[in-house]
C-alpha cells in the first residue's frame, strides 16, 4: 500500500539544487568531469520512493533540464526516462547492493543516457563529436554516487519523506 505523501518539498528542493549544480559554470578543462547531478538525484529518489518518483517525474525533470540547457525539447526527457525505466526495473536489487555495486550500475545507466544524448545531438548536428571524453561525466557521477546517496538518505530520514 502506498503511504501518505509527506515532505514532497524535500524532493522538489533536491531537484532544484541538482539543476543549480548542473548549470553552474565550469572551467573548460573540467567540463567533462561534471557529474550528472539531476540524473543521480533522480536515481536516488526512484530507489528510495519508487511509488512517488517514477518515469513521469523523470520526463518532466528532463524537459526542465532541456529548457535550462537550451537543448532540443525532449532530449534529456528521453534520456532520463530511459534511466527511470532501468532503475525502476532493478530498484529492489539496487537497495540491497553495496555502494560499490550501486556505483557500477550508476556508471552504466548514466553512461547509457549520455551515449543516447550524444548520438541524438550529433545526429541532428547540434553538437560536434568530441571523442569519448563525454563519458567521463558518467565516471565522475559513479564516483560521487556513494556520497550523494548518504546525504540524500540522511535528508530523507531527517524529514521523513514518503
Amino acid at each position: 500500500m502506498t503511504p501518505k505523501a509527506n515532505g514532497i518539498w524535500v524532493i522538489v528542493l533536491s531537484f532544484l539544487l541538482a539543476f543549480l549544480l548542473a548549470i553552474v559554470p565550469f572551467p573548460d578543462w573540467a567540463m567533462h568531469y561534471r557529474p550528472q547531478w539531476v540524473a543521480l538525484v533522480l536515481i536516488y529518489w526512484m530507489i528510495a520512493l519508487p511509488y512517488r518518483v517514477g518515469m513521469g517525474t523523470a520526463w518532466v525533470v528532463g524537459a526542465f533540464v532541456d529548457i535550462l540547457e537550451g537543448s532540443m525539447l525532449g532530449l534529456n526527457a528521453l534520456a532520463y526516462t530511459l534511466i527511470a525505466y532501468l532503475t525502476l526495473n532493478i530498484h529492489h536489487r539496487l537497495r540491497m547492493f553495496s555502494y560499490l555495486q550501486q556505483s557500477a550500475l550508476v556508471l552504466v545507466m548514466v553512461g547509457l543516457s549520455l551515449i543516447l544524448v550524444h548520438w541524438i545531438k550529433v545526429g541532428t548536428e547540434q553538437s560536434d563529436p568530441v571523442g569519448m571524453l563525454y563519458l567521463l561525466s558518467a565516471v565522475s557521477s559513479a564516483f560521487i554516487w556513494p556520497w550523494l546517496f548518504v546525504v540524500l538518505r540522511q535528508l530523507r530520514r531527517g524529514f521523513d519523506v514518503q
Binding site: I23, P25, E69, K121, V122, D128, V130, Y134
Partner: peptide, 10 residues
C-alpha cells in the same frame, strides 16, 4: 552562463 555541452559554443 556557458553551455555545458563541450561540443557546442554558446
Amino acid at each position: 552562463n556557458v553551455s555545458n555541452d563541450p561540443g557546442s559554443r554558446r
